[in-house]
Design a protein around this nucleic acid. Structure first.
Lengths: 195, 195, 195, 195
DNA sequence: GATGAATGAGGATTCATTCAT
DNA sequence: TATGAATGAATCCTCATTCAT
């Protein structure tokens, strides 16, 4: 990803920090530029406008995020195990990057509808991974054959997201990763085949 | 609820409409005043500032919402049945009030962290209702005795919320209430006692 | 003209002074507001944007200008005498209002094409006055019957304008009004009937 | 004229095109550089700053313009004929170079006062040619002996300029050169000796 | 209580110019 | 000579809030 544009990533990384520490509405372009160690105008050599920084931020970071989860779950046979890996990886990646967690769970949700639509585009990739796991689970008869994939996917994403948001808002006082198995177990019970 | 202050409710109802139809960032105080049929300055006789309108809006509307759900679930014995009533009532109330659904699911989430913290205060009442149902379910041995109440509650709220948000964002093309049983069944399976 | 909007005229008069003294490109909205004794935001209660101030300025001032000339020339029979009155009044009005002269002759010409198009709309009223005088002169046989009205009008306006601009750019070192008869005589000689 | 500096003229010619096609305020240095086929920085090897490009443009192009007119009028005896040649040549040269006409009649007038003062310096050469013709006319008794040379010169220049500007602004829909004789005849009538 | 005219702080973006290569 | 990536100063406009009437 734009390997020969070090400033591009420099600015995105600065944006993550500035948005996380100051909040979406206090993340002025000049603050991001300062954090990135470049002039204000330099931002505009790499991004069309302020919104473009935030969209790119989400695309880059969430892109990596999804790639990692896709990779980690790919080698696993069982859908149940895939789902555990997904929850664990999701929680682990955000635990390891508090700034990113704050930005994705709290700050970017304050953005306007246009930005949120772009964000949803990116999230579709993640939802596809969930869908795929659910489909495989049904095929392999790990999950009930009449599982409503769309609702199930919303339950997976909604549950994970709510757990992470609660953790972020509680100032990450407890261990998020430790909740993986609990969340995973509840989801599996919800979906499993009981013949 | 300030019964003798008709303008108070007039302004809140105007705010719901204006925010739903224009979006959070295009909901200027002057627009709300116009919609309410009062002067800009009059707003400040009833509300401390703009944020106070939105907090009050959420408190009033979500208060009614929670009261209704509390009332509806109160007369029911079984936790499983209570949970179904909760999901159904939640979906029904929002289906019947699109403006409110848009405001709570999409627009108010664009507010800043402070407002969102206040919103969470209000939501606590709702989460308590869920917690109570879950506790009763465990007591009655409808749900497994080692159920992690906090995580289960986050799963209930996260799932319901995600389903509603998807419905709102899809321009309410399908019947939300019809999803109640599907969502309920998955949640019950996740929590149930399997002795 | 907007009699009950004293701030409207206050702001326009301030704009004339600020543009004349600082130049078009150094006439910031905040400077105009300060000169008018109002807050920056107040400007936008009376004008759509900065360009609107300048367009309105030109319309109001040039409108009065044209009205005065129309009025002064109306009572005169002879086209030759009308033309003298036009030149004299033009020179007199601008001599008496140096700020306005600077603004119309030098500063507003730096504006962008859109503003200049609007300015030309206003000027059409002036050109019509000239055309009318020329037509009457031809009818009354004071001017040659084959006079090319359009070219003649361009000569009248171009000559007057060039004389005024030279006077403004020379820092009004000499008496502009004193040139009226010279300019008038040359124009009349150019147009007159020599049967 | 820097003969051994091909890029110098390359940049000036590029500036004429860019200013004519984009307008004064949209004629960025980077656009001129691109049109000239050089890097932005290269501009500054040949010109002190952006203003210097425009001044040089005017000096070079208007210099040629004046030289041509001087040359064309030089061989003619009669002042009246010289004046016709001047008008005809002026109209012809601008008709043949629309870009230059747009730049000199419309775009460069949007420049700031400083640039316009420099432009006036260049124009002085042109005004001298006019003055010279008028002086000869008086000497030869073609023109009245009490002709106010300064005012007459302003009338010549103002009239020609106004006619050209009208032609440019009308999108050159009509034949400018065809107006030469009309303009010339009116000017001569204004100035001529009537003993 | 009710009005609405007035206030004024705050920030994204452009583009002429520089200078290390 | 030539390059072009980087710089950073400078300004219009919005809108929540006030307060004289």
């Amino acid at each position: 990803m734009k390997k020969n544009k070090p400033k591009y990533n420099q600015i995105i990384d600065a944006a993550v920090i500035v948005v996380a520490e100051n909040g979406y509405h206090q993340a002025q372009v000049s603050k991001i530029a300062k954090q990135a160690g470049v002039a204000d105008g330099t931002i505009y050599l790499y991004f069309k406008n302020k919104e473009d920084i935030l969209i790119s931020l989400f695309q880059e970071k969430m892109g990596e995020f999804i790639d990692t989860i896709r990779l980690k779950t790919a080698g696993i046979e069982s859908a149940v195990e895939k789902l555990l890996m997904l929850v664990e990886t999701h929680f682990t990646l955000l635990s390891e990057n508090l700034h990113l967690a704050i930005v994705t769970q709290l700050e970017l949700r304050q953005s306007n509808k246009d930005l949120r639509l772009k964000i949803n585009e990116v999230l579709k990739g993640y939802l596809q991974v969930i869908d795929e796991i659910l489909r495989i689970g049904v095929e392999k008869q790990e999950f009930r054959e009449d599982l409503n994939i769309r609702v199930a996917r919303q339950m997976v994403f909604g549950s994970i997201d709510e757990v992470v948001t609660n953790w972020v808002m509680s100032d990450h006082k407890y261990n998020l990763v430790a909740l993986s198995t609990t969340v995973h177990e509840l989801l599996v019970r919800a979906f499993e085949n009981r013949n």
